[in-house]
Design a protein around this nucleic acid. Sequence first.
DNA 1: GTGACTTTGTGCATTCGTTCACAAGGAAGG
DNA 2: CCTTCCTTGTGAACGAATGCACAAAGTCAC
Lengths: 239, 239
Amino acid sequence: MVGREWKAVWVVGNATERRDIPDATVSRLPEYLRALTTLIEQGVASVSSEELASMVGVSSAKLRKDLSYLGSYGVRGVGYDVDHLSYQISLALGLTRTWAIAIVGMGNLGRALAAYNGFASRGVEVMALLDHHPSVIGTQIAGLTVEPFADLPRIARERGIAIALLATPARSTQEVADAVVAAGITAILNFAPISIDVPGGVQVRNVDLATEVQILAFHQQQRARGSADAAGALAEVLP
Amino acid sequence: MVGREWKAVWVVGNATERRDIPDATVSRLPEYLRALTTLIEQGVASVSSEELASMVGVSSAKLRKDLSYLGSYGVRGVGYDVDHLSYQISLALGLTRTWAIAIVGMGNLGRALAAYNGFASRGVEVMALLDHHPSVIGTQIAGLTVEPFADLPRIARERGIAIALLATPARSTQEVADAVVAAGITAILNFAPISIDVPGGVQVRNVDLATEVQILAFHQQQRARGSADAAGALAEVLP
DNA sequence: GTGACTTTGTGCATTCGTTCACAAGGAAGG
DNA sequence: CCTTCCTTGTGAACGAATGCACAAAGTCAC
Ligand SMILES: NC(=O)c1ccc[n+]([C@@H]2O[C@H](COP(=O)([O-])OP(=O)(O)OC[C@H]3O[C@@H](n4cnc5c(N)ncnc54)[C@H](O)[C@@H]3O)[C@@H](O)[C@H]2O)c1
Ligand SMILES: NC(=O)c1ccc[n+]([C@@H]2O[C@H](COP(=O)([O-])OP(=O)(O)OC[C@H]3O[C@@H](n4cnc5c(N)ncnc54)[C@H](O)[C@@H]3O)[C@@H](O)[C@H]2O)c1
């Protein structure tokens, strides 16, 4: 509804029809893009919603509805032009530019993230590695030098860093987040198993490994219960 | 209301009212549990829905509704007993037992995962590290010896492994997944940026870093557009 | 050009998830 | 015991996401 008002206001062009894409759709667009990239590598020129949907494991109706939020880029009776659709999704996601990110906390996880080579091809460039510990500062990781966390404000400004990945211990992550926000960064991907408080307007997404495993465990247990006898269920009731 | 009918049928006990917890709720339970664990460490005995909700960043109404699917464990006018609620959530998630997991692919990411010490306290134990490359097999990582991936069927059986984490290169991940499923494992947490096909009944969850960053990028760009001038928006429209 | 065929884009129904708002339940103090 | 106060638990309203089904729009063979 906010989006609706927008359309009325911005009569300039149809750039605005790319607005108000539902969250659920946004979270699937990267997957479609990934699949399309694979197709491009294979030299496939055209793909139907049915094929693409099965590649990423969603229903074709869902895929078509998702794509319809971006515009009407398919050809009826034929399918989608792989290159063009890929371009349109990149455009919608804002990946026609490169996003500069910083990684904070060069421990086990931070090093792995720094070494990850899946970023470059997907519109993201690691522009800074930061840590506060003297023994790590100055070392080379994946071709970059680790810099002092205290320099973040300057670094963020100079290199236009828009997103920070936090791989710091849970205990210090809130204060790190505060400093990151103070440095003018407004998007955070947090790997520490705590939920952080940030001012309004700052986006946070969490990746928590143990949470993921626990969700899997829940469903495994459900399945086990389904085939289990009543005795088992009864035992669980006792205090 | 479904819960009500159940009670009528299963006079035996209320173990069954823990059934049919919505997915959205299940995915939040681990976060509640994490917050409760923090409270236990702090020696807090009782907590209101308002307090707990603000710790994890959800609304108190949502929290209460979530908890209501597990049963009625609060005390009106007072709040929830921290220990008891923690226990009930653990029970619902199936964390009163320990879940044995295996990590496949001992590269950058696999090593970090193996070194992660956040599992033990959360009902998960890493019981095997696997790789197919001779130069890694036999080495020690985080106190465990890397074993040949080919031995997975035996290892899975002997150690009761229920969940596998895949940290293998995208290219080989589908075949690794096939082997994992063939070894009788029915839950997979996949870190490779591809979607894998598995037989029905096998659960897969994906953790894709680049996807997460791209979602953040999308919202950053949206915000930028909001404050941008019409010229900028217009330029992006042109094919 | 025409007709058969294929696949998109979308209105509509349904299911799932969130928020609201308040009655019911219990504690605590007089 | 009764009253006041607080917080839970939950119907009911709302909103978001999904699935269904088909008209519309195109291709291609002839
Ligand atoms: N290792 C994993 O696979 C894994 C998986 C999921 C989540 N995590 C989480 O990621 C985080 C990092 O894990 P890790 O295993 O890499 O830990 P680690 O202890 O190996 O590394 C933490 C790094 O952060 C740095 N650091 C600490 N305080 C800092 C500060 N205030 N400012 C800047 N840098 C600071 C330390 O110097 C260290 O280099 C933890 O919160 C952990 O729970 C790790
Ligand atoms: N490094 C990261 O931070 C990061 C982040 C997100 C996702 N990922 C993804 O995780 C995966 C692993 O990343 P990485 O950086 O650790 O890669 P890596 O190349 O360092 O490690 C891959 C490991 O898998 C092993 N392997 C390969 N084929 C195998 C097979 N068939 N059976 C058993 N083992 C096999 C290799 O021997 C190697 O040890 C990749 O798919 C990557 O895209 C990595």
